[in-house]
Design a protein around this nucleic acid. Structure first.
Lengths: 353, 353
DNA sequence: CTGTTAGCGCCTTCAA
DNA sequence: TTGAAGGCGCTAACAG
C-alpha cells in the first residue's frame, strides 16, 4: 500500500522533508530551481498529501459538514428542493479546496449517538451547513452555541457564529399576490406551511401586507396551514374551498403543497386556471411538469447553496459574513394562473353543494 | 479550543495514555476497575477521539466516499431517484460507525482537478459508492483498477474490488409487459434509455423476451430511445405514436420519461389510460402525483442504498461480497393502465392524420 | 534559502 | 494487567 510521502520525494530530490513540504505548499522561501525539481518529482510519483497527517498538526481538516434535517418521508435529501442547493454548495466548496461530509441528522438523542457538535469535533469539521426547517430540533443549540461557523437554510438562528441564507419571502409573496390581483382576483387564499418554520411566518406576513397594500381585505377564513407535503396541501385546500367556495385564487407556500392543491381542485371538479388560480413557491422540477404547469416563485437553489458555502468559507477564514443573506425569488408565470372566470366559478359552487 | 485528549484522561485517572486507549477501544486486557474509572472520566470530559490522529496510524479513516455522477440538469443529486438511495446508504454507514464524504464528480479531467482515485487516497477513503449511469466516464477505470472497494449503482463494471447493486430489470419488465398483456394489449411499445447505460440494455432484453414468452410479435418500429429526461421521453413518444398510431400501450424505462410520455399523449389528444396505457419504472414520488397516477415498477431505493453500504463495509473488512446484487422491483398498478379501448383509439388515429 | 528539531493525538509493539 | 517507547506523515518554529 506504499503511498508516496514527502519523505519519498525528499530522498529522490536529495533535500529535506521540510523543503518538500514548503515547495508543495507554495511557500516563497525556497529556491526556484529546487522547487521545480521537487514539483516535478512529486508529479512523477503522483504524490497525494495525507490529509489526516496535515489535519493533525494544523487543526484544519478542510471539511465542511452538511446536516440534512428532517429526513422523514419526502423531506431532506428526498426533497426535490435539496438537490440543487447541495450541488451549489458542493461545487463552491470544491472550488476552494474543501470537501463535504454529510452527517445523518435526526437520530434519537440517546447515549448511543453523538450530538451534531460531537460529530463535527471528531472530524474536525471546520463549518457546517444545516438544511431543514424546524427550529425546534433539540440538537441545534449545541451547534449554534459552539465556535464552529454554521450556516442554516431558511432558518435564522441566534448565535455568534451562526448565519443563514434564504430568499426574501416577503417581497416574493408580494410579487405573487400582485400578479393575482393584476389578473383581477379579489378573493385570494393562502395555504401556508407550519409555524415551526420561520419561512411560514415570513410568507404569511408578506401575504397580509400585500393584500393591504393592494387594498384587498384580509380574511382569516381563507388561511390554512399544512405540513409542506402534497397530501397536506391537498387537505388544507379542500377545507379552504369547502368553507369559501367563492375563493378564486390561492397562494401556496411550496410547490409540493401546490401540487396537492391541484389534486384537490381536480377532486372538487374545479379546473385550473379557469375556476381557480394557483401560485406555488420554489419552482421545483415538477412544477413545470404538472398539468397545468405551475405558476410559481423560482428560488435560485444552486445559488443559495453557493452562497452558503461562501459564507462558511469566509467565516472560517476569519471574515465574518452578514448574519443573514437573502436572495431574490422570481415569479415564473405558467399555466396555473389566469383571470377569474366568474360564470364558471358560479357553476362550480352549485356543483360543490 | 482545548479538546480533551487521551492524555487529559490519563492524567486525571492516574494511568498511562496507553491504558486509556485500551480501555476506550474495548480491549479486554485491562482491569475492570481501571476501565470503569477511565470510561467515567472520558464521559465526564465528553471525550471525542481525534479521528485524524487515529487515521494516521491505523490507515483507516472510517470514511466512505460517494460520487454522484452526471450532475447536469436534473441528474445526480437533483434526480428524484437519488435521495432515498443516499438516505439508505448513509443510515447503514452510520450504523456501522462510518461517515460519508461526497465528492464532486464529472469535473473536467485537467491538471487542476484530481482524479476520483486521488480524491479517495488523500482522504484515505476506505470504499466508494458510485451513482450514475454512463459507463463511459473516463475517470472510472482508475478507481475500478485500484484496490479500493467500489460499489456502483445500476452499472456493473469490471474490477476485482468492484461490485454493483440494482434491481432485476429483466423480471421487472416482464411483470410490466405481462400486466399490459393481461389487460388485453397487443401492441406495446417501449421508450428506453440510452445505450450507454447497462440498465437500458437489460430492460430491452426484458421487453423482448417478455413479448416472446407472451406470444406477441416484436416490432422495432415501436422501440424508441431517450435520455432519461421527461423532455426526452415526450419527444421519443411523439415520434413513436406518429409512426404507429395503433400502439395502445407503452412501457417506459423511467418515471421521469414516463411523465414526458404523459405530456406527449396529452398533446396528441390521447387520454391515458383510455386511449393509451403507460407503465413507468422507478416509482419516484412524482409518479403517484401525476394525472393519472402512474403505474410503475417500484424500486426499493432505500434498500438499494443500504445494500450498497453493506457490501462496501463487508468488502472493507475482507469479506468479498457477491459481485452483483439484484433486488426485486415490484409492479405498482395505478391509474395509467387499463384495457385497450379500440373505438377511441380509432378516432384518434383519424385525428392524428 | 535550507536543514534540524519537535510535536500534533493516537495506536501498537515490547517489556515489566 | 499496565507502562514506556516509537512512529504514522506532516507542519512549524528555530537555527544555520
Amino acid at each position: 500500500m506504499g503511498r508516496t510521502t514527502l519523505k519519498d520525494i525528499a530522498e529522490k530530490a536529495g533535500v529535506s522533508v521540510t523543503a518538500v513540504s514548503r515547495a508543495l505548499s507554495g511557500y516563497p522561501d525556497i529556491g526556484e530551481e529546487t522547487r521545480g525539481r521537487i514539483l516535478r518529482i512529486a508529479e512523477e510519483l503522483n504524490y497525494q498529501p495525507n490529509i489526516a497527517a496535515r489535519t493533525l498538526v494544523t487543526h484544519k481538516s478542510g471539511v465542511m459538514g452538511l446536516f440534512v434535517l428532517g429526513r422523514a418521508k419526502g423531506e431532506g435529501f428526498s426533497h426535490p428542493f435539496s438537490g440543487q442547493v447541495i450541488n451549489g454548495f458542493l461545487d463552491e466548496l470544491t472550488e476552494d479546496g474543501y470537501d463535504m461530509m454529510v452527517f445523518k441528522a435526526n437520530r434519537p438523542p440517546d447515549s448511543e449517538n453523538s450530538s451534531y457538535l460531537d460529530l463535527c469535533r471528531r472530524r474536525m469539521v471546520e463549518g457546517a451547513f444545516l438544511m431543514g426547517l424546524r427550529t425546534d430540533d433539540p440538537w441545534l443549540s449545541d451547534l449554534t452555541a459552539s465556535a464552529i461557523p454554521i450556516v442554516t437554510m431558511d432558518m435564522p438562528l441566534a448565535g455568534d457564529m451562526t448565519f443563514s441564507v434564504g430568499c426574501d419571502s416577503v417581497s416574493a409573496v408580494h410579487a405573487a399576490i400582485r400578479h393575482l390581483a393584476d389578473l383581477g382576483h379579489k378573493r385570494i387564499g393562502i395555504v401556508n406551511g407550519y409555524k415551526e418554520a420561520s419561512i411560514s411566518l415570513e410568507r404569511f406576513e408578506g401575504y397580509k401586507s400585500a393584500l393591504t397594500s393592494l387594498g384587498l381585505p384580509f380574511d382569516p377564513t381563507i388561511v390554512a396551514e399544512a405540513d409542506f407535503t402534497a397530501a397536506g396541501g391537498r387537505q388544507a385546500f379542500l377545507s379552504l374551498i369547502d368553507k369559501a367556495p367563492d375563493m378564486t385564487a390561492v397562494f401556496v407556500s411550496s410547490d409540493l403543497m401546490a401540487l396537492g392543491v391541484l389534486e384537490g381542485a381536480r377532486e372538487r371538479g374545479l379546473s385550473v386556471p379557469e375556476d381557480l388560480s394557483v401560485v406555488g413557491f420554489d419552482n421545483i422540477e415538477m412544477a413545470a411538469m404538472s398539468s397545468p404547469p405551475l405558476t410559481t416563485l423560482d428560488q435560485p437553489r444552486y445559488e443559495l447553496g453557493q452562497t452558503a458555502a461562501r459564507m462558511l468559507i469566509s467565516a472560517c477564514s476569519g471574515i465574518t459574513p452578514p448574519s443573514r443573506v437573502l436572495l431574490k425569488a422570481n415569479l415564473i408565470v405558467r399555466g396555473s394562473t389566469a383571470k377569474p372566470n366568474k360564470i364558471k366559478t358560479g357553476e362550480v359552487i352549485e356543483k360543490a353543494h
